[in-house]
Nucleic acid binder design. Sequence first.
DNA 1: TGTACATCAGTGAACGCGCGTTCACTGATGTAC
DNA 2: TGTACATCAGTGAACGCGCGTTCACTGATGTAC
Lengths: 230, 230
Amino acid sequence: MAPATTSRALARSAQIEAIKKVARRLIGEKSVAGLSLREVARELGLVSSALYRYFATRDELLTALILDAYNDLGAAVERAEAKVPRDDLHERWMTSGKALRRWAKRNPHEYALIYGTPTPGYEAPSVTIDAATRVVRVWGQIIADRPARRVSAADATDDARYLELHAMTTVMPGVAPSEYVRALMAWTEVFGFVSFELFGHYVGSVKDAAAAFERVLEELAASLYLVAAT
Amino acid sequence: MAPATTSRALARSAQIEAIKKVARRLIGEKSVAGLSLREVARELGLVSSALYRYFATRDELLTALILDAYNDLGAAVERAEAKVPRDDLHERWMTSGKALRRWAKRNPHEYALIYGTPTPGYEAPSVTIDAATRVVRVWGQIIADRPARRVSAADATDDARYLELHAMTTVMPGVAPSEYVRALMAWTEVFGFVSFELFGHYVGSVKDAAAAFERVLEELAASLYLVAAT
DNA sequence: TGTACATCAGTGAACGCGCGTTCACTGATGTAC
DNA sequence: TGTACATCAGTGAACGCGCGTTCACTGATGTAC
């Protein structure tokens, strides 16, 4: 789409934003399944069929919301991480992890939209892939920015078997394959923690999730040899 | 409810099982949101109102299914773990972890029912709490069964601040608080991995999830000092 | 600058659908005496 | 053992509801000459 310059085009993109904003709020109040075009239209003072000028179908609106969520989250993490001095790897890791959790706590339903149960029958189009990997690319860069570490020859081939090597070397260029599993685990742990917290599985076992999360980040930093600048 | 002895009581509990079975299948085919009492009734050749003889409401059926799912999963993990010699802590951990993943792969929608996005507006009744902790209690016992480990005095108070101490000492009696965080992390990692795998987040990065999972279990076993019998 | 035509946002009615839950009922099974 | 009554599974119609999507339309805004 060409940049919006005419008043019609401006009005159009403003309306698209308004629709997505209401849809986001409704998802927050009900759930993904509870999102209905008719209700969005009602909130905007429109007749339901008017929405079809902007989104051909309910799924198309959902896709736009998913894409936005990935990008919002990615941008939040990138923004926070960018403020940390490049050579303080430990702080870059801690800050980006905390930014992720903060975003999730502030946008729990959008988090659930992208990291909760996938909607059955709904297939996320490939457009979202790039947006979906923004966070992971930030972390990969932190790991890749470490001073070179000495690894044994055996390490070089081990984990390659069951991981997608191309993806790993793209995200973490120059990192020894023996580190891939721990990176994968750190990624899984952080999202696992946030999901468990948001979905209520820590009720009864974790009292202060913010503090526990920070402690978890510290453990992961250590396992990835991420240290502060000396 | 008294044990079913009369033919009426037998028929009743058989019907309840039949309803749950169909509901489970429908959740598998569609999703939680897509489960409708009318469709369950249709599949059973009943009129929809007949279901109200067995479940007062849709939520009550859902609760029964959630409870069953927790118990099924818990029983599967307990059963597998019980076959391993008590003193082989490493194998008890590996076996129970793999049993969890196997159950999840075989029952993806029931897994999603209990570990996916919580249904908004639906509040799981406290009955489910006990069933929900079966897996974690198996793991807690493995950790508790380790030979006593030497810990420094400082360790004894650190993690206690942000965790629910009572729950920790119940699940892992005799274990030093300094180990709590790693146990929490292992718990989170295992479920995080299975969720990521089932929900499609490993597409493009993990090629052989079974092998990767086993490798992850090994890493976690090491972090928890779970070793084989000598 | 002014007119003729094309574009497009929004309307309103309608389609066909499925849902959870209630209620008065029938008829078979179980229980008490 | 036989009868009278209570229990309860299942019926069928109805309530009131909301949904996604289509379609012919109106009228305002934008564009070409």
